[in-house]
Design a protein around this nucleic acid. Structure first.
Length: 422
RNA sequence: GGAGGGGUGGCCGAGCGGUUGAUGGCAGUUGUCUUGAAAACAACCAGGUGAUGAGCCUCGUGGGUUCGAAUCCCACCCCCUCCGCCA
């Protein structure tokens, strides 16, 4: 959610920034109109309430019964008018709130203009796609031949976009998760284990609702929602709390499964494990003081890049253009690992600064100085990393001519002595 | 699932229709005293809106009763205890 004061004071600039990101600007006018309406109503109803408060106090002190009775009768209609106007205010406020929730975040000044992913800019690359010396095979062929992924039985259990990992395939995934968490702890993050199911308000707080309802799994009877990313529980961890400045930055990392309906991507990426309804991810998350959030974004990006570097897989980093930057984000870097089997760069991490966009929704604040007014924190999130796609990159980059897969050095300590899957 | 108890400011905890947005304690900030610290004493110390003012709003949430609600009524949410069932 944007700052209503910013919209009030610089509506044209806000619209201009939204337009840069291809966002809808009509909501801004809706918000402004409702805001004006609300302020007029408030002025009137507050004057009435002030009168009621004053007179009520007078009544409590009156000795003369007749005079008192007369005053009470005179005040009767005031209460009704206040109640009616309060309902009107609540209605306007609710409509304003809903309009606010529809407005995406504004792109940061140095984000390049662009309409879609073709406008993204590669800002770093380490390693070159290498020649394996034999024709690279896609991971689904390798994994099936090695018996580490069972696609057919996954489909039998849960339908398309599900698979079963087994043997060293399952172990490799577990090793990867554990290594990622250990690495992030070393990088200064506190490991947390959260619920994978949350209440609806968490989805609003993290910005999944109202816009992305179609992509979420839920239990309507219980009011539960399955998390599409650890970002959701992590954002809400300090909801409605005021942190001390000395606590910041709060750096968290968490492993969670992620559940996504992928209705919008029907027919895309159906082969292999690139896009499932359930996938694992290790996420990094930061609560920081506003003035530091852009340097923290660079730190976050470095931490994510370190995972790729240590795995020994070629990767590149893209700065997303305005049109490809997500709804909640002001600035996003995507990290891509090279996958020789499919001859493509695979997005395995997205590192974003969302400034106060989520903090405002989830009401996460901090106190800049002892005794000072609380302010919203800035939050950042970055995958470190998405597990299945990293698995793809490992399988395809470390495949050998005989179809076996070498285990990356950093993961070997987590593989009980296994150096190769054959 | 059954029975009962409870949700008040950073924490604990009083108040149960009228100068109570809220007694008191702890924690915190500042000052006095002290070479310094501790102790003692004094002042300040919830959030939102708004201009760091006035006013208005907030005692789990939403309705209702009333001139007036933290206090009474209704619904919902959450927490705790005991019993049952289960990992």
């Amino acid at each position: 959610m944007l700052d209503i004061k910013l919209i009030r004071e610089q509506p044209e600039w806000v619209k201009q920034q939204l337009a840069r990101a291809g966002g809808d600007t009509t909501s801004v006018d809706t918000v402004l109109a409702l805001d004006e309406q609300r302020r007029v109503l408030l002025r009137d109803v507050e004057a009435l309430k002030a009168e009621r408060n004053t007179v009520s106090k007078e009544i409590s002190k009156m000795q003369d019964a007749a005079e008192r009775e007369a005053r009470i009768i005179a005040m009767r209609s005031v209460g009704d008018r206040i109640a009616a106007m309060d309902r009107e205010v609540a209605d306007v406020e609710e409509r304003q709130r809903l309009a606010m929730l529809e407005i995406r975040n504004l792109p940061y000044a140095d984000v390049p203009d662009g309409v879609d992913e073709t406008g993204n800019v590669v800002v770093a690359q380490e390693g070159e796609p290498r020649d394996l010396g034999f024709p690279a095979r896609p991971h689904w062929e390798l994994a099936e031949a090695l018996g580490i992924i069972d696609f057919e039985r996954g489909v039998k259990l849960a339908g398309t976009r599900f698979y079963v990992l087994q043997g060293l395939g399952a172990k490799l995934q577990r090793a990867l998760i554990q290594w990622l968490l250990d690495l992030h702890v070393e990088q200064g993050y506190r490991e947390v284990y959260t619920p994978f199911i949350v209440k609806e308000h968490c989805m609003w707080g993290a910005g999944q609702l109202p816009k992305f309802s179609d992509n979420l799994y839920r239990d309507p009877d219980a009011g539960f929602w399955l998390v599409p990313t650890a970002e959701v529980p992590l954002t809400n961890l300090y909801a409605d709390e005021i942190l001390e400045a000395s606590q910041l930055p709060v750096n968290l990392c968490a492993y969670t499964p992620c559940f996504r309906r992928e209705q919008m991507s029907a027919g895309r990426d159906v082969r292999g494990i690139k896009r499932g309804h359930q996938f694992d991810k290790v996420e990094m998350y930061k609560f920081v003081a506003p003035t530091t959030s852009y340097t923290e974004l660079e730190t976050l990006r470095e931490h994510a890049e370190a995972t790729c570097r240590l795995l020994g897989i070629p990767f590149r980093t893209k700065l997303l253009c305005t049109g490809d930057t997500g709804f909640a984000s002001t600035k996003t870097y995507d990290l891509e690992l090279w996958a020789p089997g499919q001859q493509e760069w695979l997005e395995v991490s997205s590192c974003s600064n969302v400034e106060a966009f989520q903090a405002r929704r989830a009401n996460v604040r901090y106190r800049p100085e002892p005794g000072a007014r609380p302010e919203y924190v800035h939050t950042l999130n970055g995958s470190g990393l998405g597990v299945p796609r990293t698995m793809i990159a490992i399988m395809e980059n470390f495949q050998q001519a005989d179809g076996s897969i070498r285990i990356p050095d950093v993961l070997q300590p987590y593989m009980n002595g296994h150096e190769v899957i054959r």
